[in-house]
Write a protein that binds this DNA or RNA. Structure first.
Lengths: 329, 329
DNA sequence: TATTTGTATGAAATCGTTTACAATTAAATG
DNA sequence: CATTTAATTGTAAACGATTTCATACAAATA
């Protein structure tokens, strides 16, 4: 593969001029531009990003950290990030951390190594301390999960309000015994959604019953099924449940199906995230839609602005309650 | 961030020696090694991949091309690719082509540009001519979709046999009117699965009825629902269907649910791919499992071998029919 | 001790760009 | 036409690593 000097020689100019044509950075005569273009075609030259990146000391590569690829929750956000980044001349590298500190370290090193310019983290299990440290010298943005105390900019939704709205919807339908299928409360969003759950109970004068709150270890279908199994074993079984993710809700729904319970007739169910499957279940699932694509756009925008030295502020985006068959009666 | 020369100065040696310590490529006294390690720690130096890559003219980055992130079909394959690559010191860049030629070109250029070392393509819509051209000078592997005529190495399963097995299963259950919900037959796998469908009909002396074959435009849920809607409008409706992807099957199942039909009592249904959601539907879905993770491993292995100049051969992996409720009676 | 062999280190070239600075040429002004 | 100003182009030094080749020194041999 030809390099810039060979192109220069072929065109009878200096490599500097070729570079100028390539980046049209300063004025070049139409005539020389043509000679250079000609030479580029003849040698079918492609500039080496390695050389360019080294010289400019930037890679135009952004890291997107997610706990695992299989979670459909992230796909639309990623699309947003991808579209915006490509638009601005950046590529994204999707990184699966598997909640594995070694993996995590690999990615942190990539930005220290200059192999990547910055990070958008959507991994709630990430090592915040290390990330804070990294953020001192590099550009980082948090998406959907964030750190209340610190100053890494983030984009997220108001989880508490969303959970509150879900509860209000269920309460209006006449439910008084409403379970919460929550994930591990080491996650901020889990704590926030629980807060919304509790606030709604309080405001509508319903008792807060600890046995109605089930915390899962993961967000897999089985965890949701397991949770529902436990809830249905209680003396006074709930008549509705709010699961903090659609995957959990779908697992719970599966269990209700297995038990032959009518949804929403005997049991109402709400999920969270509006993943595409949530509209394919039987019955279809009431859920909370986050503006995924917009969140992706916003996160990418913030990161690139940060890279270019502009000041950035965290943003809070709107959400929407999508009412479907699982709560309609 | 310190560079190798500063480390050298700090340690009182030359940059060559530091490089030798870093890569322990040739003998270095224990004493100087310690001095260098010391200096590296003091300056907390991280070698720049940009410099290294430029010098070595390799990026240790592999491109993985998929049509879109949201298709759950690819996740396990990607996990396989990722695990194997990381093991061998490569990182992967997940590239969504969106079946968009411009996007595609961007990725092709990345390997021409030396920004990436090779490509694993899982995109059935890819421009084969261009890919062949690229393959002359660069390392490329196809996964799951391949080109019968050409010599780009691939890893895949025997789609025809798989489809044949599905049909045999349905025929044994007593079905005689079996529909095929196929995707666009510009895809090789679609043509192969149709072949298996037809061969089974022939061998069991069942008529081949064109109106039982429905071709969808995409693989979304709606396409499956749409297909089932059409099939149920036929004069003599089929009693079973084989959908060439789980997403199509799930859409079809949704439509059957809507129509109030009992599955498998009134209608038996088989999918393909064994995506995780296929075990959460009601009823759970009979499907064909491909050894996704293994395919990923194999593809990455082939690509890296190729990069290192070893000869590689295409491989055909086994599949498995997973019988669940949607065909059990 | 003189000579050979082997090991440990350093100097400098290299990978392919971009860019500050200098130098050349062309255009504009009086 | 001489002089100033502006527009093009070239030279050479970075960016940060690796590696060839040469050199210094220590150990082994005669």
């Amino acid at each position: 593969m030809a390099n810039i000097h060979e192109v220069a020689k072929q065109a009878g100019v200096s490599s500097a001029t070729v570079s100028r044509v390539l980046n049209n950075t300063s004025s070049v005569t139409e005539r020389t531009r043509q000679k250079v273009d000609q030479a580029i075609k003849e040698l079918n030259y492609e500039p080496s990003m390695l050389g360019r990146n080294l010289r400019n000391s930037e890679s135009r590569l952004l890291l997107v950290l997610i706990p695992n690829f299989s979670n459909p929750y992230y796909t639309e956000i990623i699309n947003g990030i991808e579209d915006f980044s490509v638009e601005r001349g950046y590529n994204i590298l999707l990184c699966e951390t598997d909640s594995n500190p070694t993996r995590e370290n690999t990615f942190f090193n990539m930005v220290k190594n200059k192999l990547a310019d910055g990070i958008i983290s959507m991994d709630p299990t990430i090592n915040m301390a290390k990330l804070q440290e990294l953020a001192k010298k590099h550009s980082i943005v948090l998406c959907s999960e964030y750190d209340e105390l610190e100053r890494i900019p983030y984009v997220a939704i108001d989880n508490e309000v969303a959970a509150y709205k879900v509860m209000k919807h269920l309460i209006r339908l006449g439910h008084e015994n409403i379970a919460l299928i929550n994930s591990d409360e080491k996650f901020l969003y889990a704590r926030q959604r629980r807060k919304g759950y509790e606030r709604a109970l309080e405001e509508f004068d319903l008792p807060l019953r600890q046995e109605y709150i089930y915390n899962t270890n993961n967000l897999d279908f089985q965890d949701g099924a397991q949770a529902m199994r436990k809830l249905l074993q209680l003396d006074e079984t709930p008549t509705a449940a709010f699961a903090v993710s659609d995957t959990l809700a779908i697992g719970a729904l599966k269990e209700l199906n297995v038990k032959g319970m009518n949804v929403p007739g005997e049991f109402a169910l709400v999920g969270f995230d509006n993943i595409s499957f949530s509209n394919m279940t039987n019955p279809t699932l009431t859920t909370v839609a986050q503006p995924m694509y917009q969140m992706g756009i916003a996160a990418a925008n913030m990161l690139i602005d940060q890279l270019q030295g502009k000041p950035v502020d965290s943003v809070m985006l709107d959400h929407e309650l999508i009412i479907r068959e699982s709560t309609l009666n």
